[in-house]
Nucleic acid binder design. Structure first.
Length: 372
RNA sequence: GGCGGUAUCGUCUAGGGGACUAGGACGUGGCCCUCUCAAGGCCGAAACACGGGUUCGAAUCCCGUUACCGCUACCA
């Protein structure tokens, strides 16, 4: 189950792998044989049924690919268990046995493994093998500076899918946490460019704090870079009942005021009439402030637009202003009621454009309903 | 406690001895645009943890202190 979460996360991000996964359990017989051999060579010994590795007082050091040289001393390490009393191997031992077996040349993992590395190097030595290149990348912390956990919301990367984050934005954001291409560049709309720009020189040695706000900003940038036409295909089936051209027009209208695909979907569906118009808190307050005035404005607009010949942004703009002027009203006193009747929100694209997107028939229907 | 890692705006970071009045981005404050806004434009506030060295010169190199993080399992 945990394996699947990781695999799903990678798939979602568009990251692939070319072999495996390989499971530790598959190497049990070899692990046991390797441990027995170390015992036979006097490099490990039995202790309460378990097999314990004998740590000598020697220096253990390596040139980390991310950090500089890291040095430990054998005297600070205790003899550690490599095989439990039930003959199953412990992680530190199993990985070394496996990596030797698989001829692994580079090991990159989180900073939290730095303390495991000297033990593993000792095991490579005991096996008479050259250790691989180790690189320890910084960890990612929550906004509170603590290790990421359930309390911080999404635990698995793929959870962000449901928050309306695009995988390419997530990848871009994650890559920049603990890594910088140098200079001021930070937006990568093409993963190929990112791969090309990557280097261990740019990897930071310190942990980075995850900032959801910046993720959303970056997501908005990616959505705009992708453009309405291609974005429609990445939104799931929220707009699938609509003709593609219609869906694209809706997305285009709503994109400037969206940071996540959820924002896009919500506004687009609402404009398409797929979801009902329900005034939000601010809209309800606006109506309550002067309900007769609100209805009157909608009534005037409904009458004026009902016979309007030109249902274009420019034509509607002119018509709406004419309504306001001839009734001695400010433009806003006409526009805002229309906006609310059409979207249930006090925020949207300019009202004339909104009318075009919603469409003549649906718009007049909602306006009429609001006036009553 | 021991061992290890790390230390530049609130956050992500640029910076590899003089180019630093320390740059960019997110966020944030203000202004403009304007029928509204989470959109666009402009402007601003905001950081080299501290103390010693080295050097003509240190954000950059060295040492110490402090803080934070990790490990210290017959977990991974």
């Amino acid at each position: 189950a945990f394996t699947q979460v990781i695999l799903d996360g990678m798939s979602w991000l568009g990251l692939s792998w070319d072999e495996g996964p390989f499971f530790q359990g598959a190497g049990l017989a070899r692990h046991q044989a390797d441990a027995d051999r170390l015992v036979a060579e006097g490099k490990a010994y039995l202790d309460d049924g378990a097999v314990r590795f004998r740590v000598q007082h020697e220096e253990v050091a390596w040139d980390d690919a991310v950090h500089a040289r890291i040095v430990f001393h054998g005297k600070d390490l205790e003899d550690f268990v490599i095989l439990r009393a039930d003959r199953t191997p412990v992680y530190n031992f199993a990985v070394v046995s496996d990596d030797v077996h698989m001829r692994v040349t580079h090991v990159f993992r989180g900073d939290d493994h730095i303390s495991n590395t000297p033990k593993q190097i000792l095991l490579y030595r005991a096996f008479g093998q050259e250790p691989p290149v180790f690189g320890h990348v910084p960890m990612i912390l929550g906004t509170d500076g603590k290790k990421l956990s359930k309390r911080h919301g999404a635990t698995a990367v793929a959870d962000y899918q449901h928050e309306g984050i695009l995988p390419q934005a997530m990848t871009n954001f994650l890559a920049l946490l603990g890594w910088s291409p140098g200079g001021d560049r930070e937006l990568f709309f093409d993963i190929g460019e990112m791969i090309e720009a990557f280097g261990f020189d740019g990897v930071q040695g310190k942990a980075a704090v995850f900032d959801p706000k910046k993720l959303e900003w970056m997501n908005a940038e990616h959505m705009r870079a992708i453009g309405p036409a291609r974005l429609v295909g990445l939104l799931g089936d929220g707009l699938s009942t609509l003709p593609p051209a219609r869906a694209e027009a809706l997305v285009a209208a709503v994109l400037p005021r969206s940071r996540t695909t959820l924002d896009v979907l919500r506004q687009a569906r609402q404009r398409a009439g797929l979801d009902p118009v329900v005034p939000d808190e601010k809209a309800a307050a606006f109506i309550a402030k002067d309900e007769p005035g609100y209805r009157r404005a909608l009534d005037l607009v409904t009458q004026a637009l009902g016979s309007a010949a030109d249902w274009s942004a420019a034509g509607l703009e002119a018509e709406l202003r004419r309504v306001a002027e001839s009734n001695g009203m400010k433009a806003g006193a006409v526009m805002q009621p229309v906006r609310i009747a059409l979207t249930g929100s006090t925020v949207s694209e300019p009202v004339n454009e909104l009318l075009v997107v919603v469409g003549r028939e649906a718009a007049l229907g909602r306006l009429g309903a609001g006036a009553r």
